[in-house]
Design a protein around this nucleic acid. Structure first.
Lengths: 140, 140
DNA sequence: ATAAAAGTTCAAGTCAACTTGAAGTCAAGT
DNA sequence: ACTTGACTTCAAGTTGACTTGAACTTTTAT
């Protein structure tokens, strides 16, 4: 397939496909002249990338999941990501419930509505920091 | 409370709190000299902001949810956001299942494992584009 | 009274993830 | 042979969400 077909089917613009290839997230299988050729299995990969991005993983994290760095490392990594997703699913569920309630609640301000606050508080467990921004500069 | 206490309790750095105040997402209740004073209810608000950010909403979207623009507009908006979350929850669940399977699967490449692919494909429904990047420039 | 600590403003810098623009290369149809 | 349009590279620009730095003002401790 050529790049425009992949773009059409996957929903990613061609510029993004080139960008992803440069980053090593996808591969083209060859060229016709200058033009890239893609094997159709790139579509699965792109779908997974889209899913991962939607789940809040960075491109770097996603490529880590793709490439098994060691025999055991990767297995543990995948399970850790799965647990991360479980936590996030809980949060999203709490927020969704909060929104649904807020939409039918006639309290003047949601922050004064005990039910709304209770719905949100469920999510507050096991949450200390923003997930994406940890930098781990313990050692200067 | 002063800004460092809010920072400590909420987990957001002081710089972020100032930034959020400037953006109108939170308010300080007064000053002592130059220094901001916060009412403790800002903590609820911050928790909700954190939840919203984690769910992938932009700061602009979050502030829209806070401020009732009209009598009915807001209600519909909240329900729409809740539906968006429902879709995302489905995706995350599919991805989580995919990861858990991948961690125990001994196929050489996950893209060749039919179970993995099937798990992911569940999520592919009702997904055309990335949620965050729509720009709607239909009219040039 | 004085110096350090903590807070302030405002402009500029950073980072990830793309997108856009300019200039060039090909491949195909007429 | 030639034009057109799809594709290419590479550098630079954009956006959202913050962070950092420099210069300044209080508050608090000694």
């Amino acid at each position: 397939m050529d790049i425009t077909e992949v773009a059409k089917v996957s929903g990613f613009p061609a510029s993004t496909l080139r960008f992803y290839e440069e980053k090593g997230l996808i591969q083209s299988t060859g060229r016709v002249g200058l033009r890239r050729l893609f094997n159709s299995d790139v579509l699965e990969r792109l779908a997974l990338i889209g899913l991962g991005r939607g789940a809040g993983f960075s491109l770097d994290e996603i490529s880590e999941m793709f490439t098994p760095e060691g025999p055991e490392i990767n297995r543990a990594l995948l399970l850790a990501k799965a647990d991360e997703l479980d936590r996030k699913i809980k949060e999203l569920t709490a927020m969704r419930n909060g929104l649904r309630h807020a939409a039918v609640c006639n309290a003047p301000n949601h922050f004064e509505c005990p039910k709304f606050l209770r719905l949100l508080r469920v999510a507050g467990k096991n949450r200390f920091r923003q997930p994406s921004k940890l930098k781990e500069n313990k050692f200067k």
